[in-house]
Amino acid sequence: MRVEYRDRAAFLPDHDTLVVADVHLGRDETSAVELRLGEHEDITGRVAALCDRFAPEAVVVAGDLLHSFSTLPRGVMESLSALETTARDAGARAVVVRGNHDTMLDEVWDGPTATEYRVGDWVVCHGHEPPETEAAGYLVGHDHPAIEIEGQRRPCYLRGDGVYRDADLLMLPAFTPLAPGVVVNRMRARDFQSPLVTDADALRPVVRDADGDETLTFPPLGKLRRLL
């Protein structure tokens, strides 16, 4: 499947679908700082920019739209409303795939939801449990992958061909910038939380360089860990 990478999101042009994962609304309010960290403005603004760039027909959140398991921190409802309005104004419908953090989703979201959401031959799921739907590929989040290069941590995508049930896998970085990311440089399959990662060595990190306006694809982790 063709994928365009931009700002921690993935756009599937053959299906006019924009996918983000691990938005974690409310993480701002639960952070150990006295001042709010601008979560609402950052996330809603970036979703709006992505919709302006790609004009998707669907905006899919691949799990963990919410952060807290049991409370609704200040500002969450405002952000949810803004996200839904942003998608609607762009002519897209917003769909939320349930993640392990989304225990309160039914209380705050009345739009379309799914456990697994099919996009062509692929299935979007959160990745915290094995999917039930057979597919040519799976697009997931959950692990918040990042890669460390010369001491600098960058959010990254991980892509592998035929690595899960002979299907392809694409793992997105966390959309929220408040998640520092889990450095994958030396991780083995057992180190990942997602059961869909069964062969970490075959996963290629993909980094979007916004300053250079280019997408960089690195060697598979099995080779990369010997180079870094």
Rank of each mutant, 00 (worst) to 15 (best):
A10R: 04
L12C: 06
L12Y: 03
V23P: 06
H24C: 07
L25T: 03
D28Y: 06
T30Q: 15
R36N: 04
L37T: 12
G38P: 02
H40F: 15
H40T: 07
T44R: 13
T44G: 10
G45W: 04
A49T: 09
A49E: 14
L50C: 08
V59Y: 07
V61K: 09
L65Q: 08
L72D: 02
E78S: 11
S79H: 03
A82Q: 02
E84L: 13
E84H: 13
G91R: 01
G91H: 04
V96L: 10
N100C: 07
W109P: 00
W109N: 05
G120R: 11
C125E: 02
G127K: 09
P130G: 06
P130F: 04
P131A: 08
A135I: 13
D143P: 15
A146N: 05
I149E: 15
Q152W: 14
R159S: 11
A167R: 12
A174M: 03
A179Q: 14
P180G: 07
G181A: 10
V184Q: 10
M187A: 08
A189K: 11
S194Q: 10
P195M: 10
L196M: 14
T198V: 12
V207C: 04
D209S: 05
D213V: 08
D213P: 04
T217M: 13
T217V: 15
R225A: 08
